[in-house]
Amino acid sequence: MPFLAKAQCVTDSIMPIRGLSIAAPQAKSCDRFVAFIEKELAPRGVNTLILRVDYNYAYKTHPELRNDTTLTEKDVKKIVGVCKKNGIKIVPQINLLGHQSWASKEERLLKVYPQFDETPWVKMPEKYDWPNSDGLYCKSYCPLHPDVHKIVFELIDELTEVFEANDFHAGLDEVFYLGEEKCPRCAGRDKAELFAGEVNLIRNHLAQKNRKLWMWGDRLIDGQQTGMGMWEASMNCTHRAIDLIAKDIFICDWHYERPDKTAIYFAMKGFNVATCVWNKHEVSMLQTQDIIKFRKESSPAMQERFKGIVVTFWGSAESMVDNFDKSAEPDREPTKAFLNVFDYVKRLSKP
């Protein structure tokens, strides 16, 4: 067995998923991003790329939902090609349900189809501040609107097909607007059931073509009982949905301030889970050590549910690539966390 193949097998046994979640690059930066995958990600053993595409692709099914500058099919195939060459799984993402706006700007779905808005009475401010009297963080679409899923599912199908992907990430994080009293469809509904209904609907659509749903896990954690609050957990009762959704959904369990051990909770509930880290490299290292420990010290059934680590990067793809350019001087803290995690796993994986 060649050395590389042997090392790969050892790495997989320690941590099956070694991922990066990052925004899709701009079209003009696509070649640079492809080179980054080849030169930086692959040699460090990254085998999963969650690519946050949203409306930055030249959709043919719904061209009205394209952003002004988008990746073309040709651009996407370049990314697909380099990932195939290096054994990297692509999981494309569109933020669904929540995150339909950011700051003072609506995202394309609600901008083009305002009738899908769960809270049309909440107007986008000229200048965004948090906190605010409307409780506006990000808008949501109404999960019970009769026309929204036809459009959403067509986007999912097109994106997964062009990326040749067997898995799709739907976001589903930080959903604050759900089951609002003024919504003619959602008012009075149980928010856990509403959330679970949307999750299962997306999951079932993907399952028709043997694809799997990935999602962030924060809305499935009880923010009050855990003390984790409204960001990394739920304070509007959606956490009960964890017992209402399909067990084959992959959970991306993110915590950035502390190495909270909720991966155990998801695994005990029967879900495959990856711990997701960000910019605090000391916390990221503890989280990495935890997931390896869980795989070693749990029961055989539980061991296989702890799938690994996903490093998240919340700047642009271009800024992360810049962080690997010694001539640039951006904030390198998220990059430090990324390097520490993957260098640590690589050291453990030496045969």
Score class of each variant (00 low, 15 high):
residue 2 P to F: 13
residue 4 L to P: 04
residue 6 K to F: 09
residue 7 A to K: 05
residue 9 C to R: 14
residue 17 I to P: 05
residue 20 L to Q: 03
residue 23 A to G: 03
residue 25 P to H: 02
residue 26 Q to P: 00
residue 26 Q to H: 12
residue 27 A to D: 14
residue 29 S to H: 13
residue 29 S to F: 11
residue 36 F to P: 10
residue 36 F to G: 02
residue 37 I to P: 03
residue 38 E to Q: 14
residue 43 P to D: 00
residue 46 V to D: 10
residue 52 R to E: 13
residue 57 Y to W: 02
residue 65 L to C: 10
residue 72 T to Q: 04
residue 73 E to C: 04
residue 74 K to W: 06
residue 75 D to N: 09
residue 76 V to Q: 01
residue 88 I to G: 00
residue 89 K to S: 08
residue 96 L to E: 13
residue 96 L to T: 15
residue 97 L to S: 03
residue 97 L to V: 03
residue 101 S to H: 14
residue 105 K to D: 12
residue 105 K to S: 12
residue 107 E to I: 06
residue 107 E to T: 00
residue 108 R to D: 05
residue 110 L to I: 05
residue 116 F to T: 10
residue 116 F to S: 08
residue 125 P to G: 15
residue 130 W to V: 08
residue 130 W to M: 14
residue 130 W to Q: 00
residue 131 P to L: 02
residue 136 L to F: 00
residue 138 C to M: 11
residue 140 S to E: 13
residue 142 C to L: 08
residue 146 P to N: 05
residue 147 D to G: 01
residue 148 V to D: 02
residue 158 E to R: 06
residue 159 L to D: 01
residue 159 L to G: 01
residue 163 F to A: 04
residue 166 N to R: 07
residue 167 D to M: 08
residue 167 D to Q: 12
residue 169 H to F: 12
residue 171 G to S: 11
residue 174 E to W: 09
residue 174 E to V: 14
residue 183 C to H: 01
residue 186 C to P: 00
residue 192 A to W: 12
residue 193 E to S: 14
residue 197 G to E: 09
residue 199 V to H: 09
residue 200 N to Q: 03
residue 200 N to H: 03
residue 203 R to S: 06
residue 204 N to D: 15
residue 206 L to D: 01
residue 212 K to W: 07
residue 214 W to K: 02
residue 214 W to M: 08
residue 216 W to D: 01
residue 219 R to K: 15
residue 223 G to R: 11
residue 226 T to E: 13
residue 233 A to Y: 03
residue 234 S to C: 14
residue 236 N to H: 11
residue 237 C to A: 15
residue 238 T to K: 04
residue 238 T to C: 08
residue 244 L to K: 15
residue 248 D to Q: 05
residue 250 F to R: 15
residue 250 F to M: 15
residue 259 P to W: 13
residue 267 A to T: 05
residue 273 V to G: 02
residue 275 T to G: 06
residue 276 C to T: 04
residue 280 K to D: 15
residue 284 S to M: 07
residue 285 M to F: 06
residue 286 L to A: 11
residue 288 T to L: 11
residue 291 I to K: 01
residue 294 F to E: 01
residue 294 F to G: 06
residue 299 S to T: 11
residue 301 A to I: 03
residue 306 F to E: 01
residue 306 F to C: 05
residue 316 S to Y: 01
residue 316 S to L: 04
residue 317 A to P: 13
residue 320 M to P: 04
residue 322 D to F: 07
residue 322 D to H: 00
residue 323 N to V: 00
residue 325 D to T: 11
residue 326 K to N: 09
residue 327 S to F: 06
residue 331 D to M: 09
residue 333 E to V: 01
residue 337 A to G: 04
residue 338 F to W: 08
residue 338 F to Q: 10
residue 342 F to M: 01
residue 344 Y to W: 14
residue 346 K to S: 01
residue 346 K to D: 03
residue 348 L to Q: 08
residue 350 K to H: 11
